[in-house]
């Protein structure tokens, strides 16, 4: 049971990194990124492949951040020329392209068979709860650093400008500031966070296949930040926590609710999340933590 809870906590922390990245991009800057999972995948495959070449994880995980961040750069250049809705479509297309590329390029990624035997963090520590806790500690530390950095950004002149971009881009231009550079930085930073999340995921699960990187992952992250409160760091944290608790907790619900099969339960779960999303948008669009105005 302890191991199970630790596993949930680790996955929740990984999703929290993803949520923080999207909070920076959408919540603060207003960039509608529907391709978050693409950068998560790039991070996962980068770190997995490099570590299997024998590189230490202390190098491959930062490398995952760098490749995911670099992949965001051209997307950022495109974003400057597109309206919000088109940008959303482009990012969605990007993440699906990433998935198709890793499915097809078998020489590199082993295609649909995926990559097994990815080294764990702290492989030298014997398997068991000790190793789990050590892994959790590392991811928690990285998440805390990310939260700290985000809070610094929110309270800074940089944060003021990206929120101004979200509220009215043309007004900012009329005041002599070019939104372009800010948007690109935000996309790179948020995607680098997704890349780190992907690397942790790969080294925790130890086996990655293209099917783990479907758009549903992106939309889980969207759900988390909408439930928690868009544009607030605390919203990303609370929303992710609640979503994970529900997704995992509902596994046990099946023991209580009779006559629901495993498959039905999986669909039911997504249905309930969808319903929650609708209810939130109608009755509390600012999310649990948001008041729309103050940080």
């Amino acid at each position: 049971m302890d191991a199970y809870l630790a596993a949930i906590a680790i996955i929740a922390l990984i999703y929290m990194l993803l949520s923080l990245g999207l909070t920076l991009q959408y919540g603060l800057t207003g960039l509608i990124n529907f391709g978050h999972v693409g950068f998560f995948a790039i991070g996962a495959y980068t770190s997995a492949l490099l570590s299997l070449q024998g590189l230490p994880l202390a190098l491959t995980i930062p490398a995952a951040a760098v490749t995911a961040g670099l992949a965001a750069w051209p997307i950022g250049l495109i974003s400057l020329r597109l309206r919000d809705d088109y940008f959303a479509i482009v990012t969605l297309g990007f993440s699906e392209t990433v998935r198709l590329v890793i499915t097809s390029e078998k020489w590199l990624t082993n295609g649909v068979q995926g990559i097994p035997g990815i080294p764990r963090l702290f492989e030298t520590i014997s398997v068991g709860i000790g190793a789990q806790l050590a892994v959790m500690g590392v991811i928690l530390a990285v998440t805390l650093v990310a939260i700290y950095a985000m809070r610094r950004i929110v309270a800074s002149p940089f944060g003021r400008v990206i929120e101004a971009i979200r509220d009215n881009e043309e007004a900012l231009q009329a005041l002599g500031k070019d939104p372009a550079g800010f948007k690109i930085q935000v996309l790179i930073l948020g995607s680098a966070l997704a890349g780190i999340a992907g690397a942790f995921y790969a080294h925790y699960i130890t086996y990655i296949v293209p099917d783990q990187f479907i758009p549903l992952v992106t939309f889980y992250v969207w759900m988390a930040i909408i439930i928690g409160g868009v544009g607030r760091v605390s919203g990303a944290i609370v929303g992710t926590g609640l979503l994970m608790l529900f997704l995992e907790g509902s596994r046990f619900l099946r023991d209580i609710v009779p006559g629901v099969s495993e498959v039905e339960m999986a669909s039911l779960r997504i249905g309930v999340v969808g319903l929650l999303l609708v209810l939130f948008t109608i009755y509390r669009p600012q999310g649990l933590m948001g008041d729309f105005t103050k940080r």
């Binding site: 003021r160 929120e163 101004a164 979200r166 509220d167 009215n168 043309e170 007004a171 900012l172 009329a174 544009g231 729309f292 105005t293």
Partner: peptide
Amino acid sequence: QVPREFAHL
């Protein structure tokens, strides 16, 4: 003409 304030700031 129509004010473009940064509404949430």
